[in-house]
């Protein structure tokens, strides 16, 4: 693609949203610096947009391979104690985490 224009700057609000989604705690003073840095990174990467890719199929992996499948067999597990040994907190056989959805006892299991 020719005649490409550099991407717009990453705004302070976009930084805040991105940090929120990545669960990063930023102080307000971090934001201008990050905004500058990320904008520069994006501008650098956007030079790729100058390449004409009209007839090139999208590529998602660098290695030309396909997904290998395994047989449906049960393989060795790790013991519960070994698994729980590194847990910051455990309760009997469970991993324990700070209460999710405080004040709610609903089975809001997962996003998927």
């Amino acid at each position: 693609m020719s005649g490409h224009t550099p991407p717009p700057r990453i705004s302070a609000d976009e930084i805040r949203v991105t940090a929120e989604m990545a669960r990063l705690l930023l102080s307000e003073s971090d934001i201008p610096k990050l905004s500058d840095e990320l904008s520069a990174i994006l501008a650098y990467a956007s030079s790729l947009a100058e390449v004409d890719v009209t007839d090139v199929p999208p590529m998602t992996h660098a290695v030309p391979d396909h997904c290998r499948l395994r047989g449906d067999v049960i393989e060795p597990h790790i013991s519960r104690d070994a698994a729980l040994r590194n847990a910051p907190q455990r309760e009997s056989a469970y991993f324990a985490v700070p209460a999710v959805f405080a004040g709610s006892d609903e089975g809001f299991d997962s996003e998927g």
Partner: peptide, 9 residues
């Protein structure tokens, strides 16, 4: 979720 509890298992 343990109702009223501080942790989830």
């Amino acid at each position: 979720h343990i109702p009223g509890g501080r942790t989830s298992l």
